[in-house]
């Protein structure tokens, strides 16, 4: 389940009006979310939640659900 807060930061960073983010959504399925944009999207998520991801953690993300789970883990560890 993608939180409203994560959805909102993704929409803002990608200049989208709306998008139906699901756990299984892949970044390339989202308009504007290409490989060049990926790093700035991840940085925006880190900033929003005030967390830091390791490069390997980012590489292993397969879908938006993984990103949500990573955010949740980082917040729980705070």
């Amino acid at each position: 389940m993608i939180s409203d807060r994560l959805k909102s930061v993704l929409l803002r960073e990608l200049n989208l009006r709306d998008f139906d983010f699901q756990d299984a959504t892949l970044a390339p399925q989202v308009p504007g979310w290409d490989s060049l944009r990926h790093i700035s999207v991840v940085a925006a998520v880190e900033k929003e939640f005030d967390v830091r991801f390791k490069s390997l953690e980012v590489i292993k993300l397969k879908n938006i659900g993984d990103l949500q789970a990573l955010v949740d883990r980082k917040l729980a560890a705070k």
């Binding site: 490989s35 060049l36 790093i39 490069s55 390997l56 980012v58």
Partner: peptide, 10 residues
């Protein structure tokens, strides 16, 4: 290439 664009520190 895909890993690098995701994590340029590599």
């Amino acid at each position: 290439p895909f890993e690098w664009i995701t994590a340029p520190i590599l």
